[in-house]
């Protein structure tokens, strides 16, 4: 089965995000005074050939080993089956 997996990676709450802070300040300059916080993260889209019982553990391992750095980053992911046309 072919799956499309979206992995979302963000800096942990406790870790200051200087790029996010700069974007927030720029949004304030544009007049969006209500913006209280901006956190910049990454989204990765993976196409993976796997099975229903293995896919979640495999993606978790990918995140822990390479895609995220657990010291400063959190991750979550969404798995969807790719329906053939």
């Amino acid at each position: 089965m072919l799956y499309e997996v979206k992995v979302f990676i963000s800096l942990k709450e406790a870790v200051l995000d200087p790029a996010g802070a700069a974007v927030k300040s720029s949004l304030h300059h544009l007049g969006f005074a209500g913006v209280e916080d901006v956190r910049i993260g990454k989204v990765m889209t993976l196409q993976i050939e796997s099975t229903e019982d293995k896919i979640e553990a495999a993606v978790t391992e990918m995140c822990e080993k390479l895609l995220a750095n657990p010291v400063i980053e959190d991750y979550r992911f969404e798995i969807e089956e790719v329906v053939s046309q």
């Binding site: 800096l11 870790v15 200051l16 995000d17 200087p18 790029a19 700069a22 750095n69 010291v71 400063i72």
Partner: peptide
């Protein structure tokens, strides 16, 4: 060395970017 886990911690962007 940080990514390899030989040293503790991680690097972030410089505070003033």
């Amino acid at each position: 060395l940080l990514e390899a886990g030989l040293l503790p911690g991680a690097m972030r962007r410089n505070k003033d970017l």
